[in-house]
Measured scan of single mutants.
Amino acid sequence: RLHIEVEGTELMKKLVEEAKRRNLNVRAKVENGKWIIEID
Results as ranks from 00 to 15, higher is better:
Lys34Met: 11
Lys34Trp: 10
Lys20Met: 14
Ile37Tyr: 01
Trp35Gln: 00
Arg21Thr: 04
Gly33Ser: 03
Leu11Ala: 13
Thr9Tyr: 15
Leu2Phe: 13
Lys29Trp: 15
Glu17His: 09
Val30Gly: 06
Asn23Tyr: 10
Asn25Trp: 08
Glu17Met: 12
Glu18Pro: 00
Asp40His: 07
Asn25Thr: 11
His3Phe: 14
Ala19Pro: 00
Lys20Pro: 00
Val16Tyr: 08
Ile39Gln: 01
Met12Phe: 07
Asn23Val: 03
Ile4Met: 08
Leu11Gln: 11
Ala28Tyr: 13
Arg1Leu: 13
Lys29Gly: 05
Leu24Asp: 00
Gly8His: 12
Glu18Ser: 09
Ile4Gly: 04
Val26Met: 04
Lys13Ala: 07
Gly33Glu: 04
Gly8Met: 13
Leu15Lys: 01
Thr9Cys: 15
Asp40Tyr: 15
Asn32Arg: 04
Arg27Gly: 01
Met12Trp: 10
Lys13Gln: 12
Leu24His: 02
Leu2Gly: 05
Met12Ala: 10
Gly33Arg: 01
Lys20Ser: 05
Lys13His: 10
Glu17Thr: 09
Val6Gln: 04
Gly8Tyr: 11
Leu2His: 08
Leu11Tyr: 10
Glu5Tyr: 11
Met12Asp: 01
Val6His: 04
Asn25Glu: 05
Lys34Asn: 05
Glu17Ile: 10
Glu17Ala: 14
Thr9Lys: 09
Ala28Asn: 03
Arg22Trp: 08
Asn32Asp: 08
Glu17Gln: 11
Glu5Ala: 08
Glu31Trp: 07
Lys29Ser: 11
Met12Lys: 02
Arg21Val: 03
Gly8Asn: 14
Glu5Asn: 07
Arg27Ser: 10
Arg21Gln: 07
Leu24Tyr: 05
Trp35Ala: 01
Trp35Thr: 02
Glu38Asn: 05
Ile36Asn: 01
Thr9Gln: 10
Leu24Glu: 00
Glu17Tyr: 12
Ile4Phe: 13
Lys14Arg: 14
Arg27Ala: 05
Lys34Phe: 09
Lys20Asp: 02
Lys29Cys: 09
Ile36His: 05
Lys14Met: 12
Ile39Asp: 02
Leu24Ser: 00
Arg22Lys: 08
Lys14Gln: 12
Ala19Leu: 15
His3Glu: 10
Lys20Thr: 10
Lys29Ala: 07
Arg22Thr: 02
Lys13Trp: 13
Glu18Arg: 08
Ile37Gln: 00
Val6Asp: 04
Lys20Glu: 07
Arg27Asn: 06
Glu18Gln: 11
Ile39Ala: 02
His3Lys: 13
Val16Glu: 03
Lys34Tyr: 08
Ile37Arg: 00
Lys13Asn: 09
Leu2Pro: 05
Leu11Phe: 12
Arg22Asn: 07
Glu7Ile: 14
Arg1Gly: 08
Glu10Phe: 09
Ile39Glu: 02
Val6Asn: 04
Val26Gln: 00
Asp40Val: 12
Glu31His: 11
Arg21Ile: 06
Ala28Leu: 14
Ile37Gly: 00
Thr9Ala: 13
Asp40Met: 12
Asp40Arg: 08
Leu15Ala: 03
Ala19Phe: 15
Glu38Lys: 06
Arg21Trp: 05
Ile39Met: 05
His3Arg: 15
Gly33Ile: 01
Asn32Gly: 10
Leu24Asn: 00
Glu18Ile: 12
Asn23Ile: 07
Lys20Leu: 14
Val6Pro: 03
Lys13Glu: 11
Met12Asn: 01
Ile4Ser: 04
Glu17Gly: 07
Glu7Trp: 15
Leu11Asp: 08
Lys20Ile: 13
Val30Ser: 12
Glu17Leu: 12
Glu7Pro: 06
Gly33Tyr: 02
Leu2Ile: 13
Glu7Ala: 11
Gly33Asn: 07
Asn23His: 12
Glu31Ala: 10
Leu15Asp: 00
Val26His: 01
Ile37Met: 01
Ile37Leu: 06
Ile4Asn: 03
Ile36Thr: 04
Val16Gln: 03
Glu7His: 13
Gly33Thr: 02
Thr9Asp: 14
Lys29Pro: 00
Asn32Ser: 05
Ala19Thr: 02
Ile37Phe: 02
Trp35His: 02
Arg1Cys: 15
Asn32Pro: 01
Ile4Thr: 05
Ile39Val: 06
His3Gly: 05
Arg22Met: 12
Ala28Met: 12
Ile37Ala: 00
Gly8Gln: 11
Gly33Phe: 03
Asn25Pro: 04
Val30Asp: 05
Leu11Glu: 14
Ala19Gly: 04
Glu31Leu: 13
Gly33Val: 00
Asn25Ile: 13
Arg21Asp: 02
Glu5Ile: 15
Leu15Glu: 01
Asn25Phe: 10
Glu7Gly: 08
Glu38Thr: 12
Leu15Val: 11
Asn25Gly: 06
Ile4Ala: 04
Asn32Val: 02
Leu15Ile: 15
Leu2Ala: 06
Ile37Lys: 00
Glu7Thr: 12
Glu7Ser: 12
Asn23Gly: 15
Leu24Gly: 00
Leu15Ser: 01
Glu31Thr: 06
Gly33Met: 03
Lys14Pro: 01
Val6Lys: 04
Ala28Arg: 04
Arg22Asp: 01
Asn32Thr: 02
Gly33Gln: 03
Ala28Trp: 13
Arg22Glu: 02
Val6Gly: 08
Ile37Glu: 00
Glu7Tyr: 14
Ala28Asp: 01
Val26Pro: 04
Val30Gln: 15
Glu10Tyr: 08
Asp40Asn: 09
Val30Ile: 14
Asn32Ile: 02
Gly33Ala: 02
Val26Ser: 01
Lys29Asn: 06
Lys29Leu: 07
Lys14His: 08
Lys20Gly: 04
Ala28Pro: 02
Glu10Trp: 13
Ala28Ser: 06
Thr9His: 12
